[in-house]
Structures are given as structure tokens and as C-alpha cells.
Amino acid sequence: MELIYKGKTKNVFKLEDGHYLLQFKDDVTGENGVFDPGANSVGLTIDGAGLAGLKLTSFFYSKLNEQGIPTHYVDANFSDATMTVKPATVFGKGLEVICRFKAVGSFLRRYGAYVQEGQELDSFVEVTIKDDERLDPPISADALHMLSILSLEEYAILKERTIEISKFVAGELEKKGLTLYDIKLEFGRDAKTNEILLIDEISGGNMRAYKGNTYIEPLELEKIILAD
């Protein structure tokens, strides 16, 4: 097993069969010790966050695979907090795609002159470039096309799948009496077929979920969703 990449919340290893292994860590993104799924640096460490994130990711990815939505997920091993995935290439140096159902976080900080906190948003899709030095700047479809990061046709697929997946996740949360405010997803291209795939994770660490007006922490979210 060859270590390929050490990330903020996961380490990536290459397996002999060509697949990759993602090792989930207990580190989560945030600022000043406060969790923030949209932050571009590790803000704190939460014991058990890695395994909780893996269990929730496995739950959502398994359901998406059953529905025929393309993902990189193969299987998961909870005993060592790892997930086996298909090889995929990222767009440019990496993109993050956020689907927003409520005005919170960085959206509220930027557009607070026009919206109230918690205001309803109509599945607003926002793409940012993964670039810590430049604080993950948002980028438009036209700019992505002009910079040859992805085509306008690929952007349309990206947006459609983001809304479809995000609404699915929101529906699963709603079954447990929770409301999804926003979620951050990542996509890439299948290394063999070039098909656009959902990659990375779907966990409490990359979404904001509320029960009424109460924010649900990532570990608590995993317990609620996976409870029988």
C-alpha cells in the first residue's frame, strides 16, 4: 500500500489492484476551534469523527450506488476507518460544489446585505476552487470553461447531479426530523471511462443539519441517521 496524499481529514493510499484506500481522520475543518464545513483549514479534532464520517458516507454512497448515481465508492472497513474507492481524476486541482437550501455560513457572510440568516434558498449550487492560499474562491461556469477546468456541458451535469444528490440527502435527513441547510460535495472523472463521479465523502463533516433551530454536531448526526 503506497501513501499518495496526506489531506486535512483523510489520507489516501494506492492499492495493488489499482483501487485507492481513503483513511478517515478525526480532524475536521473549522476556525478558532469551531466546526465549519466550508472552512479550508483543520479547526479541531473530534474523537470518533473519522469513523462516524465513514459510516455515514458508506450509508449514503451505498444508497446512491443502488439508484445508479455514479460514485467512486466500492466498500468500507469500519474496523480501521477506511474506504475503498475507484481511481478518479479531479477537475483542475480540485473543486468543491456546495448546494445551499438555507442562507448560512460563507453565503450569509458575503450576501448578508440581501438575505436574512436561515432564509430559504432554492437548491443554490456554488462551485469553489480548492486553493487554501486564495481561500477557496468561488468560480462561475463561464470561468471554469474558459480556464479549461471543465466544459459547459460538464458543468450542467455537475449542477444537475449536485441538486439530485443533495435533495436525496435532505430527504434522508427529513425522515429523522432534521433539516439540511447546506452540503459540500466533490466530483471527479472516472479514470477509466471519464464519466463524472461523486467522490470524497458525504458525512456530518461536510454538511450543516438542524433539528428545529438547533445545529446537530457531526457525531450526533451519524447517530441519528443510522439509528434503527
Rank of each mutant, 00 (worst) to 15 (best):
L54R: 01
E201H: 03
D142P: 02
T29L: 07
D26I: 02
Y20E: 13
F60I: 07
T128P: 01
D75H: 10
R208P: 12
A39V: 05
R208H: 09
R100S: 12
Q116R: 09
Y20P: 03
L135C: 00
L185R: 07
P137Q: 00
D122L: 04
M207F: 10
N206T: 11
K102S: 10
G18I: 11
G18T: 12
A81E: 15
V125A: 00
L15K: 10
N213T: 12
N77P: 10
P87Y: 08
S166R: 07
L22A: 04
V127N: 02
V42S: 12
A227G: 09
G212Y: 08
F107A: 03
D136S: 00
D26A: 00
Y61V: 02
H145D: 07
I196N: 02
G7S: 06
D200K: 01
Y210H: 06
F78S: 01
V28L: 14
G43A: 06
D80M: 04
Y210V: 05
L197I: 09
N194K: 08
G18F: 13
G33T: 13
D27Y: 10
G68F: 12
F107L: 13
V74M: 07
P87W: 09
L54S: 01
I157H: 00
Y111P: 11
E2C: 02
K55M: 03
N11P: 08
K6R: 14
I163A: 08
A191D: 15
K102D: 08
K159C: 05
Q67K: 14
I163H: 13
T214H: 06
Y73R: 01
K159E: 12
E164N: 12
T89Y: 06
F91A: 04
N194T: 13
N213V: 10
C99N: 11
A52S: 15
I224G: 04
F91N: 04
G94T: 03
E160D: 13
L21V: 09
L21F: 14
F187E: 00
A52I: 05
V104E: 08
E174H: 05
A191N: 08
Y215A: 12
M146Y: 11
T57C: 04
E222N: 11
G38Q: 14
L3D: 07
E126H: 02
A88N: 14
K14G: 12
L64E: 07
G212K: 03
L15W: 10
A113Y: 08
G53N: 07
L150V: 00
F187P: 05
M207C: 05
A170L: 10
F124L: 15
A49P: 12
L144T: 00
A39L: 10
I163K: 10
S62Y: 15
E120A: 13
N194L: 04
D136P: 03
D36K: 04
I202Y: 11
K223Y: 09
M83Y: 12
I129H: 08
N32Y: 06
P37S: 03
L185C: 08
D80P: 14
E31P: 02
K192R: 09
A52W: 13
D182Q: 04
R161T: 15
A113I: 11
I157T: 06
A52G: 15
L173F: 15
L21P: 10
G94M: 03
A143P: 00
Y155D: 01
L144W: 10
I163V: 15
L180T: 02
I129S: 01
N32S: 05
L221K: 13
T84N: 04
T9M: 11
H145S: 05
V42Q: 12
